[in-house]
Amino acid sequence: MAQAKHSSFLTYRGGRWAKFALVFSVICIGLYFAFDFEPVRNGGSWYGYTLGTIGALLILWLAWLGVRKRRYNPGNWSLKAWTSAHVYLGLSLLVIGTLHTGLQFGWNVHTLAYALMVLVILSGMFGVYFYITVPRRMSDNRAEASQVEMLDELENVSRLLRETSLSLQDADTQRILDMLAKTTLKSGVMTRLRDSHVRCPNARALKDFKVAVRTIEGDVQRGMFDVISVLERRDSLLGRIRRHQRYRALLELWLWIHIPATITLIALLIVHIIAVFYYQ
C-alpha cells in the first residue's frame, strides 16, 4: 500500500516532482542562453513559442487541480501526488514564464498576464508556507476539541456567567448581560483575521471588573470574584476560538487571491494568445 507511506506532499516519493521541476528549469535556462536569438530574445522566436505553449498548457493543467480535488472517482490517483506536482511545477512556471517573456516588459496585456501569473505563484508560495506552519499550531490550540465542541463549551460558560452575574449589583449585572449580547464571533476571512482580542467586550469587562473588585468588600466582592473567574475562563476560551478561526482563515486567505487570479489569468492568457496571433 504505497499510500500508507507517511510523507507530506512536499516530500512525496522523495521529492520526485521537485527534482523533475528543477531539472526542467535548469534545461530551459541552459537552452535560453545556448542559442542566439535575432533580433532579440522574445516570445516570438521558436524557443519563445515552445516555452509559451508549455507554459500555457501547464497553467491549464495546474488549474485543473481545482476540478481534480472535487472528483472523487475510483482510480489509482492520489491528491497528495497532484498537490506535490502542482507546487513544484507551479514554481517552475515562474522560470518558464519569465524565459518566455525574453525580459521584454511594457504597459500591455502581455505583461499584465505575466504579472498576474507571478501573483498567482506568489500567493501559492504563501499557501505552501501556511500549509507547513499552521496545522501544527492549530492542532496545539484546539487540544482535541472540535470546533463544535468549543462553541458548545462557550455556550455553557456564557450561561454560567449569566447565572453568576445575578449576584452582582444591578448595574454590573446589566453590564455582563449587555456584554454577552455584544460578544460575537465573526465570520468572513478578513474579519476573522482582524478580530482583535483587545477589543473583545469580554476582555474589557474582565479588565474593568478586576479594577472594580478592589474597591468593594463583603458578599458583593465575593460575588464579583466568582464572576471574574468565569470571565477569565470565557476569556481564554474566546481566545482559543479566535485563534482557531484565525488559523483557519490563514489556511483559506491566500486562496482568495490564488483562485480568482488564476481564473483572470486564464482569461488574459486567451486574450494574450489571440492578440499575438492577430497582430503578427
Binding site: K69, P74, L79
Partner: peptide, 19 residues
C-alpha cells in the same frame, strides 16, 4: 473501489494515512 481508501487518496497534504 479501484485505488483504495478514498479518504487517503483525497488528502491533499498527506496527513491522512491508513495503517
Amino acid at each position: 473501489i479501484t485505488g483504495g481508501a478514498a479518504c487517503v487518496r483525497a488528502c491533499p497534504t498527506g496527513a491522512a494515512i491508513r495503517v
